[in-house]
């Protein structure tokens, strides 16, 4: 199968075949990161710009490492040290970057749709590394890769996504991806954090954690995004964690071989108890490892042959 997409903007635009191609390709890239010499010459002479308008450790580092292990030149731009602080618009920034002829631009922006606008504007491939509360496709791909690696399949699994669904691009991308791949998705969170009509995305909805995680194969905990909540939508963190923290008591409701996932960074003791985050069910660090492989696969698929 040929990969014909110019950009990776969201899981919503990907077909099941395309998702499978990315996951299969990523599997082959895992090995490169385990070598003593962690570099292959595949993307020699290609330039990748990481344009991050929001804070990030994992995603930015992961993209940078992925590019470097494929021998591409990667350049990082963060908003705080760029001309954005002088008042340059996103469009002007993009046009200027385009004039320097990179091959791929990876962008994270707080505005939903920012990567889509860039994709229409410039000739380079755009990868969405998170746009507002809209999509975070590479996270969903690495999550699906981790599920497939640990469970051998995605179809037929019951996956509970718990937390602030309304503000979560990770949840949205995973809902698109997992339902496409045939999993049964359950979302749970306080009523204020559940978007209206979320059922239309093909998920079942609970406002109690215990009901949501009963008998599930996967629990995906979301981070409480303190930075996105100017208006307080719950009374206190302590109250939130009383009802929605995954701990050693409520985890027993899930299947015995449940996988615990979290996109990071984790708020220990708020949405996930430390002993669960570090415990035997947790695949949180496997997700990070697979993230590099998924991003290598995407960079490879977007650049190899035009």
């Amino acid at each position: 199968m040929k990969f014909t997409k110019k950009d990776i903007l969201g899981i919503k635009d990907l077909t099941v075949d395309e998702i499978n191609l990315v996951l299969d390709t990523a599997e082959s890239f895992i090995e490169v990161s385990t070598r003593e010499i962690k570099k292959v010459p595949t993307l020699r002479g290609k330039t990748i710009v990481n344009l991050f308008f929001e804070a990030s450790t994992r995603t930015r580092t992961s993209f940078e490492i992925a590019g470097k292990r494929l021998s591409a030149d990667t350049i990082n731009i963060s908003a705080s040290t760029s001309s954005v602080v002088k008042g340059e618009t996103l469009i002007d920034t993009a046009r200027n970057l385009e004039a320097m002829n990179p091959d791929i631009i990876v962008i994270r922006h707080s505005a939903a749709g920012a990567p889509h606008m860039l994709a229409r504007l410039v000739k380079q491939s755009i990868i969405n590394a998170g746009d507002g509360a809209h999509e975070h496709p590479t996270q969903a791909l690495l999550d699906m890769m981790t599920i497939k690696e640990k469970k051998g399949k995605i179809a037929g699994l019951r996956v509970a996504i718990v937390g602030d669904i309304a503000h979560s691009r990770v949840a949205r991308s995973n809902i698109y991806g997992l339902t496409k791949m045939g999993a049964q998705v359950i979302v749970a969170g306080p009523a204020m954090m559940l978007p209206r009509n979320i059922e239309q995305m093909g998920v079942s909805v609970y406002d109690h954690m215990e009901e949501a995680i009963k008998g599930v194969d996967i629990i995906m905990m979301l981070r409480i995004q303190l930075e996105r909540q100017q208006q307080k939508i719950f009374p206190s963190l302590r109250e939130y964690s009383n009802y929605f923290c995954l701990n050693r008591t409520n985890i027993t409701l899930a299947k015995e071989d449940v996988l615990v996932m979290h996109p990071g960074p984790i708020n220990r003791g708020i949405e996930i108890a430390p002993d669960i985050a570090d415990g035997p069910y947790s695949v949180i660090l496997d997700q990070v490892t697979n993230g590099v492989a998924v991003r290598m696969a995407l960079l490879y698929l977007l650049t190899g042959g035009k």
């Binding site: 390709t25 599997e27 082959s28 890239f29 595949t42 494929l70 490879y300 190899g304 042959g305 035009k306």
Partner: peptide
């Protein structure tokens, strides 16, 4: 050994061969 990632023709044509796994479990 899978040599896909080392090919000299990746930039040419329309082909985007799928890399398979390399497995050399010794130095």
């Amino acid at each position: 050994l899978d040599i896909t990632l080392y090919r000299d023709d990746l930039r040419m044509g329309n082909k985007k061969p799928r890399p398979e796994k390399t497995d050399i479990p010794f130095s």
